[in-house]
């Protein structure tokens, strides 16, 4: 009995030592070397691919953000600032509850199923809103023109992109609100439309932050 106990203890000791040595290799050396190389060769990317406008960091090109008006008094949800291109709905984002010293963004999806009544309502409301705000005096949006990404939340809640269809759908509104010719906004969207990588990977997309940054620069020049 004692013999098998000491045997087990000896074996467990070997297990622990093995783990500690391998922790040194895979949990200390490996990440440090990778970090060194990443910081040296890809400094901008390794630190979050931020975008600057007018000398100020305005976010990361990879992380979607809201383009809202400052919230009015007593308003629960801030209203979208319609002078800027809008991204996808973000119903899946959470707020942190554990480490409350920070106001961290909690990435995530809504996880609602296709027959979930709440999701059906969200989609309905989003579609109605997209049609309403994007229809201008001389240009009415038909509900069938609204692409799926405009009315659904993404997996991360932080999708930085929208489909080119959704960007084009917003062109008349952007032109009207900013007093720009439609054609000029149209070509701005075209310039910022990225096709599939090598022609077949992923889907065509428009990065909303880059597009809005370019729009701001365009407005500043006038």
């Amino acid at each position: 009995m004692t013999n098998s106990l000491t045997n087990t203890a000896r074996l467990l000791g070997a297990g622990l030592r093995a783990l500690l040595v391998l922790t040194l290799v895979t949990g200390v050396l490996y990440p440090l070397v990778i970090t060194g190389i990443a910081q040296g060769l890809f400094n901008h990317k390794a630190n979050g691919s931020d975008i600057t406008a007018d000398g100020k960091v305005v976010g990361s090109s990879l992380i979607g953000q809201p383009y809202n008006l400052p919230p009015g008094k007593g308003e629960e949800t801030p209203a979208p600032d319609l002078t800027w291109f809008q991204g996808r709905p973000q119903n899946g984002l959470g707020t942190n509850s554990v480490n409350t010293q920070y106001k961290l963004i909690l990435s995530g999806a809504t996880n609602r199923s296709g027959d979930n009544e709440e999701l059906v309502q969200w989609v309905k409301d989003a579609k109605a809103a997209v049609v309403k705000v994007n229809s201008t005096a001389g240009h009415t949006i038909d509900p069938s023109e609204v692409p799926a990404d405009a009315v659904t939340s993404s997996g991360s809640g932080l999708d930085p992109d929208i489909s080119p269809q959704y960007a084009h759908l917003q062109v008349h509104r952007i032109a009207e609100r900013n007093g720009l010719p439609v054609a000029e906004v149209q070509s701005l969207v075209d310039e910022h439309t990225e096709g599939r990588t090598l022609g077949f990977m992923g889907e065509p997309r428009v990065n909303v932050l880059e597009l809005n940054t370019a729009l701001k620069a365009l407005l500043a020049k006038r």
């Binding site: 996808r88 899946g92 999806a109 809504t110 996880n111 609602r112 199923s113 296709g114 027959d115 979930n116 999701l119 059906v120 969200w122 989609v123 309905k124 579609k127 069938s144 609204v146 692409p147 799926a148 990404d149 009315v151 659904t152 939340s153 993404s154 997996g155 991360s156 999708d159 992109d161 929208i162 489909s163 990977m201 992923g202 889907e203 997309r205």
Partner: peptide, 25 residues
């Protein structure tokens, strides 16, 4: 994309990222 919400949205993009699309996902 079968399912009431996806038919209404005209695509099963809920919980999916634009850059990957349906195929990559």
């Amino acid at each position: 994309h079968q399912g009431p919400a996806f038919e209404l949205a005209n695509g099963a993009m809920e919980g999916k990222e634009v850059r990957f699309g349906i195929g990559g996902s």
